[in-house]
Design a protein around this nucleic acid. Structure first.
Length: 187
DNA sequence: AATATGCGCAACCGCTCCGTG
DNA sequence: ACACGGAGCGGTTGCGCATAT
């Protein structure tokens, strides 16, 4: 597409981060704040691209991260949020303090999917597997998020997924659940 | 004890959106 | 109105560890 790469790949490290790189990144952000990710690696003396730094900070180095296993409560919350929001991991993460979208995405793919299947539910549609077999597998839940997450840029996402009237029905099943989804934008 | 297989997590890639000139 | 650059997101990959054979 002729777009310039996000960084000069020839001079950037890839793969796992070293302790020293972590320390440099954390120290720099503690001193200067997050600011411009593109210029951060150079300023911090890191041979990484800005994207990589951002991901590392958000998913691993941020001081407010809650490491460790997900609780049963968190499990259920993720399931419910996924039922409403679909694979909008950043939106789901915004409602789980201390958790990152990447972490939740991984957890979903490795644990919750199986949990739902064991319950006889389709992980994408949250419907009984037999019915899900009839429903299209690309079923998404984008319409609700437009309503529920007012500030999200994803609400107008042109990701190309079609809306589906059935989504509103699935939400109605959650009538008794207060997820505070009309609250202020994620921190 | 050695090897094969499966699982979980960290990281990368490509795309889209938004802000700015 | 348009083009460009930066930031963010979701999907996918690959490595390392744990468990089974």
């Amino acid at each position: 597409m002729g777009r310039s790469p996000c960084c000069e790949k020839a001079h950037t490290n890839k793969g796992a981060w070293t302790k020293e790189e972590d320390q440099r990144l954390a120290a720099y952000i503690n001193d200067h704040g997050e600011g411009c990710w593109r210029s951060l690696p150079k300023a911090a003396g890191l041979q990484r691209c800005g994207k990589s730094c951002r991901l590392r900070w958000i998913n691993y180095l941020r001081p407010d991260l809650k490491r460790g296993n997900f609780t049963g409560e968190e499990d259920e919350l993720i399931i419910k949020l996924h039922q409403i929001l679909g694979n909008k991991w950043s939106l789901i993460a915004a409602r789980l303090p201390g958790r990152t979208d990447n972490e939740i995405k991984n957890y979903w793919n490795t644990h919750i999917k199986r949990k739902l299947i064991a319950r006889g539910l389709d992980p994408q549609t949250h419907r009984p597997l037999t019915a899900a077999a009839v429903a299209p597998s690309c079923h998404r839940h984008h319409d609700q998020q437009a309503v529920l997450s007012g500030s999200s840029r994803d609400s107008s996402s042109g990701a190309g997924h079609s809306s589906n009237d059935d989504d509103s029905k699935s939400v109605s099943h959650l009538g008794s659940i207060d997820l505070n989804l009309s609250l202020s934008p994620p921190s």
